[in-house]
Amino acid sequence: MDDDDDDVPQLSSHTLAALQEFYLEQQQREGMKTSQGFNQYSVGSIEEDWQLSQFWYSDETASCLANEAIVAAGKGGRIACVSAPSVYQKLKEQDGADFSVYILEYDRRFSVYGEEFIFYDYNNPLNLPEHLLPHSFDIVVADPPYLSEECLQKTAETINYLTKGKILLCTGAIMEEQAAKHLGVKICKFIPKHSRNLANEFRCYVNYASGLD
């Protein structure tokens, strides 16, 4: 036994210390992810995927839009987040919330949210499950993935189908005319920010008296 032990390679004290430091830093990083819930470039544990045209809002913007949706929906209200996972995540963080919320999203990674996740492809705007009844949401928060009239027009079909009336849209400033045309919304004073700086200026649009002006 002693002879076998002598043959086992031994790590130097310096190497052992380096390994311990590495594992400690790894544990601390994992602990930060767990305690914070998400960092500035993720929603929950889901990172942005630029190939899917995903750009998460800053923490402040997501909180502001979530609070606006709660107020607009009212007590016991229903909120739909269409391609707006940052807002959805903030709504889920609300303690003792008196509202229900669904996320309509193309990215199937969001299926971790269970029954609240609805697979959504804007190319098939009305291909929705039967339990999503027409005009059954007090407010729809939407952020079409592309700055094109085609994408906005198709997403607008979904929004108009779901909402009882209130719409909170986030898209590029260049889409102002098309947003008014397809959804009857007007630009707000509030300027949304993203975790990463985007080349295009984004704005919020509503069709009701909101707290964003």
Rank of each mutant, 00 (worst) to 15 (best):
G37H: 02
K33T: 00
A17G: 04
P9F: 07
R29T: 14
E21V: 08
Q20C: 15
G31D: 09
Q28G: 07
L19R: 11
L24P: 01
D3E: 13
D6Q: 12
M32V: 12
V8I: 15
Y23V: 12
A17R: 08
S13N: 11
D5R: 04
V8K: 03
Q36W: 05
F22D: 04
D7T: 05
G37Q: 02
L19C: 15
D4A: 01
L16I: 14
D3N: 06
E30W: 03
Q27I: 12
A17V: 07
L24Y: 06
M32N: 08
S35H: 07
T15R: 09
T15V: 15
D7S: 13
Q26I: 09
D2N: 07
R29Y: 14
S12Y: 01
S13G: 02
D6F: 06
R29E: 13
S35N: 10
D3W: 07
E25H: 06
S12L: 04
V8E: 04
G37T: 04
L16M: 10
M32Y: 06
E25L: 10
D5A: 10
R29A: 14
G37V: 00
H14K: 13
D3L: 07
Q36L: 11
E25I: 03
D4G: 01
E30N: 10
F22Q: 09
S13C: 11
Q27F: 14
D4E: 08
Q26V: 05
R29Q: 15
S12G: 03
S12Q: 02
A17T: 10
S13L: 15
L24S: 09
Q26L: 06
E25W: 04
E30K: 09
T34Y: 10
V8D: 11
D3Q: 07
D7F: 12
V8R: 04
S12I: 03
S35L: 05
D2G: 02
A18G: 07
A17Y: 06
L19T: 01
E30H: 06
